[in-house]
Write a protein that binds this DNA or RNA. Structure first.
Lengths: 156, 156
DNA sequence: CCTGAAACTGATTAAAC
DNA sequence: GTTTAATCAGTTTCAGG
């Protein structure tokens, strides 16, 4: 499938605001409405777009306490890895989890109401997962930047 | 403004898929289409929703190299903090940046094509920012979990 | 890739309960 | 909160260039 500069530009616009009309997009891209429509469908069918979602204001819903947790497994055996990853996926306070290179095995982004809820999460949920060796928590003082949009600037 | 359990449920659905019709949402929530429409407008106007965006498949667009960078400033004076945060905001490879408690001052999520591009980013962009004391990079081996949806399970 | 038109679907507003 | 209905706007499909 062809994936050209126009497609990248289109994806950038959709990553900014997916509710804008094809007419608006057609103006920005210099294409016809039909052409925009067909490009979007092409990108959707080819799997370039994982979905369209609403982004919620964390402060408004009182979920403004973000913590990054580094986690080390007790041992790096296949069984522990699989079971840990499965358990982590079930925790709804964990928005993101990455298997990392370096001193720690995993990095988790945890979102809760406040310190009290984080304590609850640590004691009753995270540390009850088996095979965890050690954890190290870092609290977010301030969110300096946060975007979900992948940038294609360097490829134009 | 009232913000009840139904609103939370509605936000959960919109965080999963913001393109579903009000009719679909009305079925899920047991409300009329008009009620759904009015609740969404209420939430939008009250600032609960930051926006509606397309989520792009990183693998498809060859941007599948994620790196977390810990950064320590040379000194923790106001001037350095402000200027660093301003500079970081300009870097389009940086999707997220957090001011943290702990050993390091900042945590950056960097998304690039590959190691070569990351090297370029480090040498030509990140380390040219003034007042950086030291950096520590951790490469993502595998993305275990990644969602943008805030969960309200514990509040129901 | 384009234009234009037709058909359809959903959003939006209003009225009445 | 509900229903219904009217209107408008946007999507989707199609024909033809």
């Amino acid at each position: 499938m062809v994936f050209d500069t126009t497609d990248k530009e289109l994806l950038e616009y959709l990553q900014q605001d997916c509710k804008q009309t094809n007419k608006e997009l057609s103006n920005k891209l210099g294409l016809s409405v039909t052409a925009v429509y067909e490009r979007i469908k092409k990108l959707e069918k080819a799997g370039f777009i994982n979905g369209y979602v609403a982004l919620v204001n964390k402060e408004k819903v009182e979920k403004n306490f973000t913590v990054f947790c580094h986690i080390k497994l007790a041992q790096h055996i296949q069984e522990y890895v699989v079971s840990f990853e499965k358990e982590v996926n079930k925790l709804n306070e964990v928005l993101e989890c990455y298997h990392l290179s370096g001193d720690y095995d995993y990095l988790l982004k945890v979102l809760v109401n406040d310190m009290a809820e984080f304590r609850e999460f640590m004691v009753k949920k995270l540390t009850t997962i088996s095979h965890i060796g050690s954890t190290h928590s870092m609290f977010v003082i301030n969110e300096v930047k946060h975007t979900t949009a992948i940038n294609f600037e360097n490829e134009k």
